[in-house]
Every structure is written in structure tokens, then in C-alpha cells.
Design a protein around this nucleic acid. Sequence first.
DNA 1: CGCCCATTTGAAAATAATCAATGGAAGTGG
DNA 2: CCACTTCCATTGATTATTTTCAAATGGGCG
Lengths: 228, 228
Amino acid sequence: MQAAIALSTQRESPISDRANQGPMPGDSMAALDHVGAVITLQRDETLFLGGDKADCYFKVLKGAVRSSKVLDDGRRHIGDFYLIGDFIGLDAGETHGAAAEAIGETVLIRYARRNVDALAAEQPRVAQSLIELMRARLIAARERMVLLGHMTAMERIAAFLLGLAGRAEDGRIDLPMTRTDIGDYLGLTMETVSRAFSKLKTGGIIVQRSMHELALVDRAALLALIQR
Amino acid sequence: MQAAIALSTQRESPISDRANQGPMPGDSMAALDHVGAVITLQRDETLFLGGDKADCYFKVLKGAVRSSKVLDDGRRHIGDFYLIGDFIGLDAGETHGAAAEAIGETVLIRYARRNVDALAAEQPRVAQSLIELMRARLIAARERMVLLGHMTAMERIAAFLLGLAGRAEDGRIDLPMTRTDIGDYLGLTMETVSRAFSKLKTGGIIVQRSMHELALVDRAALLALIQR
DNA sequence: CGCCCATTTGAAAATAATCAATGGAAGTGG
DNA sequence: CCACTTCCATTGATTATTTTCAAATGGGCG
């Protein structure tokens, strides 16, 4: 399955169901396919730590990764969830600003940043692709700021679930992460996340198939929730 | 004053006092200097609206600009404040996702995006500079997410003031925007912002010189506030 | 000088966090 | 394979923070 390791298949931004803005960049980056090494992580194993030298990009082939950062007061902030197809490491200067850990058993492909940079220096189209990818991430970051700055707990959860549901056409939503992970991602406590889920279940908007798999029954109701 | 219109003098990110991460990119973009047009806006005049075609970049020469977006419920989110030296338009796909308005009388220089893109296509170093600038903005966006997701009202205000104070070496802080602007930027109400300011004044940490100018008396105290 | 708008301040209400206890699932080792 | 253990999730009660509503103050500008 070639597409699985082609950079060109990467999604622009984790957890976002916003419509594509024009054609996907990255087709010109297929030349990188052969330089990637496949690595596997077990649950809670770290891909890198905050402060580590950022000399690689990664793409998730299987499983899921969370980017996390422990704050001064001991609380934890989750920067992003990276699911299948997502690209890791685009943001990061010399060093990583946050750690990355596997949520479950996870398989990734690793690209040396040096190689990517060299390719970008040679081929303007590759550089342009990188710029477009980062622009997309910046746009996603802005959406998340609106969420964190102006949305209620329920709205955040609704937006989060809609983002995940955008992946699968049927209503199946895979939640590999814990409630605490979700809380740290949305700026809420685990308890608030749990209560919101319960309310959605009671309201018949979602059905819980197992602890880590939901079915979205009423998409319209969720959409209504994020538009107060 | 050549430096004033050189792209190379732009700051990496609005409202952030984080240390520079290596040498500033952009020196290779001096070739753009001659293609910029100077424009002037009065208070509350719009530079562009959300949805407008994004065919230009701008740099603030004088004054200040806010990027704003009205949410479905009528509330307003401020994406960023752009102060002197800041570069506008790096995030934006085909169209702008938010409006940009002058906070007071503001002078900007405008660069056609087409020209910048063409230059990037010719000169890998220019493309690399753009990538680095966007990376820096992404890093700043992540910091803001931590602020919006995990900080209290007082911590947000402290971080905001420290970011502004980072500009001027002496403790003078210029606040061209209103309390409402600040609230919409930090995910707080105008009243909460005002109360936080009052508490800082009472505590002798800041002194209010005029409505839009503060003096930072006790920087260490502010720093302590953001590290609970 | 007076008006208008931004700001400040106060009191009440709402939202989410915290504290606390129970329930349930997954994984371990006998 | 089952029981034990541990971690995660759920639910309830209380507390804290921020918002909302309301009123008064003050500055800037015509």
C-alpha cells in the first residue's frame, strides 16, 4: 500500500472537519517516500520529549499520538492529537516545545528533517507545499483558539466529536485517548468531559459502543450545539 | 529610514516575549522592499474583512491592528494584535478567516502576495524564511492555546502585559486597544479584565499613567503570577 | 461645557473546578 | 480461567471563578 507512506496523503490538521481549502499540497513531496524509516511504539512510550532536538518529522501509520506539556503548576496541556495520516513535527524550532507519546500501540514513519529541508531547498514546489501545510496548521490553530477562548464545555466537546467524526463517514467515532487526555486538550477537567458525554448519551445524540468507541446518532444536534 | 520597510525587521510573533530561537530569518527578503505600497487607515477602518481574497501581506509601520471575528452567538474573538513591526497575512488560505481593523490611526506597508510567492519560488532562501516565520507563529499559537486553555484570568492578563512589556525596555506599556478588545483576545469579559487591572494597581505592580498607557513597576511580581 | 462612550465597581447568577465516593473495565498473576 | 488489583470513568455535593446584569464614574471629543 504505497499511499500509506506517501507524504501526499497527510491530512492538513488534526481534529478538524473544516472543508479543504483548495487542492492539497504535498504531491511534490513523494520523493521523500524512500527516506522514511518505520518505527513502532507501545502505549505511553515517548516519541520525543520537550526540549529534545527536533531533527525528524513523523507520520502516523497506525494508532495515535498525543503532544503534551506539563505546566508549572503540574497540570498538563495537550497540544494536539495526531491520528492516522497526521504529520508530526511541522511546528518545532530547533527543539520540540512539547513531548509526544503514543496513546496506544502506534506505528510511525520517520523522515529526517535534514532530508526534507534539502529537498525543499532544491525544489521550490516542495517548499511551497511545506508553506501551505504550515498555513493550514496555523488556520487550525486559530480555530482552536476560538474554541478555547470562547466556547462552553459542551460546545468544546461537540466541536471535538464533530472533528473526529469528520474522519469516518459513518457515525463511528474512535476515542483512543482517555477522558483526562480529552480534558487536557480542551481545557476542561476529566469530570466535566465525562458529564458532557453523559448528557449527550442521555439526549440520544451519541451512543457509547465501548469505552473508546462512540456512534454519532444525531450529527445535526451536535452542530446545533456549537452554534448556540 | 530603510529598516522601517525592510521585511527583515519584522518580529516573529505578536504579543510574545519569548527569547529568539536562533537567528532571525528574513534577511533574504530584502528584495521585496521596493514592491511595497504604503497605506494609512483611520481608527476602526478595516484593512480587510473575513472572507476577502487574501492577495496581500501587510506590515505595521505605525499604530496597531486587530484581527477579529464575530462568532455565531454575536460574541467577538480577537485573533491577534499586530503592533509596530508585525507582519499581517501569513496565516490565511485563499481568503482571510478574520477581519483586520486599525485600532487607532495606522500606517502599513502592503506587499502583493503574488510577488512574495514568486520570489519564494525563485529563491529557496526566501521560501525557507517564510517557513521559519510561519513556524514561529505556530509556536506562538501553541503558547496562546496554553494560555486560553489552562490559565486563570489573572494569569492571562499578566502574560499579556509581560508580552507587551517585552517590547519596551523601560516599564512603559502602550495599550492602544480597549478593555473589550483585550477581553476578546484573552477569552475574558471586559469586566474581568478591568478587575484584574484594578487588582494589579492596588497591589502596586502596575501604575496607570493614562487610559492607554501603563508603567510596569514590579515585573517579577507579574512573572510570579503566571507561574502560580 | 456637556455629551457619549469606555471604564470601573458592585451584586447576583451561572459555569466549571474541586473534593469525594462509587462503579466498571482492563490487565496481572496465580 | 478466575480472582485480584489498578486505573479509568461516572456521578454527586460543594466551592471557586468568571460571567452577567446593573449602576455609577470618568475621560475624551465635539
